[in-house]
Nucleic acid binder design. Structure first.
Lengths: 122, 122
DNA sequence: TGAACACATGAACACTTGTTCACGTGTTAT
DNA sequence: ATAACACGTGAACAAGTGTTCATGTGTTCA
């Protein structure tokens, strides 16, 4: 799936290509995409990410901020870690988490734009 | 969650702000984000989207392309429709689906970039 | 009109996912 | 050394999700 300008989007227009439809995404790539976006498919993980958008924070403070148990937050941070969305540094018995890169911001913005678009009238 | 340049990302640096951590995303917004990304958290939906990236297609051709039953594809298209990721037009007893806008391309590209980044060495 | 077709939908079932609870590891303080 | 603390992890259970199967709606063709 690329971004060629000739791709049809936004309204269904006739397609005169009779060749069989082929899914361009391989099963493996589709699986990887789904796993990644699936991680973003939980409201508590978004709240954790949004708290980390303010700067790094300890697990216990994150738990207080999103009103979850430390255990639950730790489980979620583990998932975010495996998807490389957050990184951390240890300092004594505290562990400080922060966002790993800017991709999460861009994804957030793109999704927001989509969700904020008004539903069409017909 | 915005994109201010002063936000700390990519590595955990010290944060000397002692104010309590506040999650900027409201529960409702986090829920909406999760619902949207959750829809993208299924490999078969990505394969359907990737097939539609080539142009509009009928349900039955989509089913053949992604090797699923027409019923399963129809169920998935319904979900994609409610998230306004696809639109359709009816033509006799056929229904042609296509991508609704370009957001899906941008999301795909951003995720790809993230997934393709090499894991760091330490 | 009746049969075949293309698609949609509801119920049910298997499977996945997120939380809680209990416990373990490593660090700090007394 | 001992206790308290901060965090991580495994098992288990509740809740959510995707597929199949059966059926329904609307269209085309003989």
């Amino acid at each position: 799936m690329n971004n060629r300008p000739d791709l049809q989007a936004n309204q269904c227009s006739e397609n005169h290509d009779d060749s069989p439809v082929t899914a361009i995404l391989s099963l493996e790539k589709a699986q990887r995409m789904a796993e990644f976006f699936g991680v973003l498919g939980d409201p508590n993980r978004w709240r954790i990410l949004s708290a980390l958008a303010m700067g790094e924070h300890r697990v216990r403070d994150l738990a207080a901020a999103v009103d979850m148990s430390e255990s639950a937050v730790s489980h979620q941070l583990r998932i975010l870690r495996t998807m490389r969305l957050v990184s951390y540094r240890k300092r004594g018995r505290n562990v400080f988490y922060c966002l790993k890169d800017d991709h999460i911001f861009n994804l957030y913005r793109e999704a927001s734009e989509h969700l904020d678009e008004p539903p069409e009238v017909e």
